[in-house]
Design a protein around this nucleic acid. Structure first.
Lengths: 241, 241
DNA sequence: ACCTGAACACCGTTCAAGT
DNA sequence: ACCTGAACACCGTTCAAGT
């Protein structure tokens, strides 16, 4: 509140410099808004992304943001698309489809590890980011010889698995930013399980829950998928071996 | 607004009858609140579940609800647990683990088809419903001979897949309540894909998207899983065949 | 065309006051 | 113990008014 006047003077300085350095212009744009949203989502809590927080950070009015973005949902989708797009673009082109599928899956997992809010977002409404993922996975499946509805089924299965894991993991990761917190969280969750259902079998499951490693378990799941797809494909099309 | 007075008089009638018929008592309880929440979520839009809507339906005050439920998140978790608990309890005990896993997966899929809001909820924070699902799946995997960390990995993979599919499907299903709407939605989404990325390969994917059947594709994914788990298990423990 | 910021129509949650 | 309902501290979104 007390910074209001100060932020105005900062803006005036920026306006002054922008005359000499147009690259540092403070002109509002969709990209700048999305960028600011990502910063807030990464730095603060997911609930801290409000239009009021955005207007403060961008030192502008609410209406100005609506001039570039239709609503909050579109803004969240754009932020998600930006993060996923960046991550998928970085994947090295690999000639071996199975290795490429592992790399794609893992890069999405890591992106959600770094930006937990993306995990929740990816299983919401039409997401442009999901098309990117479908294309990346689909191309590798094609190279693997999986086509037509089999490709659609396999792609759907893998993508649902990746997004499902991501969302599950992100739900916990949001409240445990580091490794120690994560372990404490899993321990508490395991205790909750055994308390809620005092059954020896649940006890065993709780032990596994406590001791598992997220990343390794995620990769184990990808392997189950690849094995399943390969086995089903080789059943139809015998390998040249 | 104008019904305010009327709802009060209705309540007074209920109070009068409750003296003679205690089973129809209007006493507030956690169960009654959860039940009312499920009704609103099923009947109206997800965003229509507000504490004001609840107080109107239960003809009470906001504070009364907070006396039985900690907050909105807990209410949503309880509603989700109620739906999933009901569905899992109905599954016939099947001696063949693979058939049982198919039944469990499908019943969760169908529950989310009937209550799309459950799909979004299941990939949020600690959900008691998720323990139920883990236990149901874990027991079948054990019967299949999968134990220890292999059981944990396989269970995690299957559950992530089921919840991921459910969330993806529910995201679309929320805005297309019937089959005709669903087809129109898929057609629009496919058109969006081809428009956003004019690539022959994306065109093929869009065709598959338009023509696929949700339920069949979901089951195809479960099959890929079962094949993968079986193949990996038989690799380690040769079948007695 | 782009931006401002007050105003609108909501939320979830709290809490003094009642029974 | 259980309930009431006004009040609080927020939201996303709109829109007349400015440049």
């Amino acid at each position: 509140m007390m910074l209001e006047r100060h932020s105005i003077s900062v803006k005036m300085v920026l306006m002054a410099t922008s005359n000499r350095n147009p690259r540092r212009s403070d002109a509002l744009s969709r990209d700048r808004i999305v960028e600011a949203a990502i910063e807030i989502l990464d730095t603060e809590d997911e609930s801290d992304l409000t239009f009021r927080a955005l207007t403060t950070r961008l030192s502008t009015g609410a209406g100005a943001i609506y001039h570039h973005v239709a609503n909050k949902n579109e803004l969240l989708a754009a932020a998600t698309d930006e993060v996923i797009g960046r991550v998928l673009a970085e994947i090295a082109v690999d000639t071996e489809p199975r290795r490429a599928i592992r790399a794609i899956s893992l890069s999405i997992f890591d992106a959600i590890d770094a930006h937990p809010w993306v995990g929740a977002q990816l299983s919401h409404d039409p997401q442009p980011a999901v098309l990117r993922i479908w294309k990346a996975v689909g191309l590798q499946l094609r190279d693997l010889g999986v086509t037509g509805s089999a490709q659609s089924d396999a792609g759907s299965a893998l993508i649902s698995y990746v997004l499902g894991s991501a969302a599950q993991y992100a739900a916990g990761a949001r409240r445990s930013p580091n490794d120690t917190d994560r372990k404490a969280y899993l321990k508490a969750l395991a205790a909750q399980w055994t308390q809620r259902d005092p059954d020896p079998f649940v006890d065993e499951m709780a032990t596994q829950l406590r001791e598992h490693n997220d990343r390794e378990q995620f990769l184990a799941g990808v392997e189950i998928f690849l094995t399943g797809i390969t086995a089903q494909t080789s059943w139809l099309v015998p390998r040249s071996q």
